[in-house]
Write a protein that binds this DNA or RNA. Sequence first.
DNA 1: AAGGTATATACTTTCAAAGGTATGTTGACG
DNA 2: CGTCAACATACCTTTGAAAGTATATACCTT
Lengths: 104, 104
Amino acid sequence: MLTTFEVLSLPARREILERLRSGPSSVSELSDALGLSQPITSKHLRVLKDAGFVSVRPDAQRRWYELRPEPFVEVAQWLEPYRWMWEDRLDRLGRYLDDEEASR
Amino acid sequence: MLTTFEVLSLPARREILERLRSGPSSVSELSDALGLSQPITSKHLRVLKDAGFVSVRPDAQRRWYELRPEPFVEVAQWLEPYRWMWEDRLDRLGRYLDDEEASR
DNA sequence: AAGGTATATACTTTCAAAGGTATGTTGACG
DNA sequence: CGTCAACATACCTTTGAAAGTATATACCTT
């Protein structure tokens, strides 16, 4: 199973995620919209599902894929300790320290 | 050249970045601290440099590597349109009010 | 039951990143 | 000037993700 950042390293998969921001979508809708073959699309969705980026809801032959927040939260948490580099406002530093303290 | 997310997909490189949060470091310091061989460390640092994650300052035989914000900002900007998934409006309203207050 | 639709997966090939090892390069210092 | 120290890079090998193609599965419709 691929890790969160490995999943995100492929542009096609980021495009799938971007498209899912506007709501759930079926495989054929995604493959049409992004110009990918159906098998390729299914395989990317499988990877995205295994990593927690999407969930699936069957509906007859269709599968509706939908965004899930967990891996995005993981990225946000990874990113947080680096924010001081470009957001050097003291109140944000304060907020970061508050969060650190609150997490213990 | 590897893209931002490709660079981040390797744990060893994320560990290097994490270590650099406490300040600039030389190759041997990093390789000792992380248990990596010197060539491997140098190669990862080369990748990180090419992708803009670090800058280098020569000092005799030593090279001091230091974090740079740009790629982190890129990740933050990519992440932003997904925040609604786990941060609801009230959270963001709260932060907005905090910012307004802090700016006076 | 038959045929069509929507999706998943098996199989193969390709390709490039990652690690290991050896060697090159540059500067310090006796 | 020779040697050591710190680092970079060239070369080779391995490995696994990605794409393409073909096929399997499940469900609807008539």
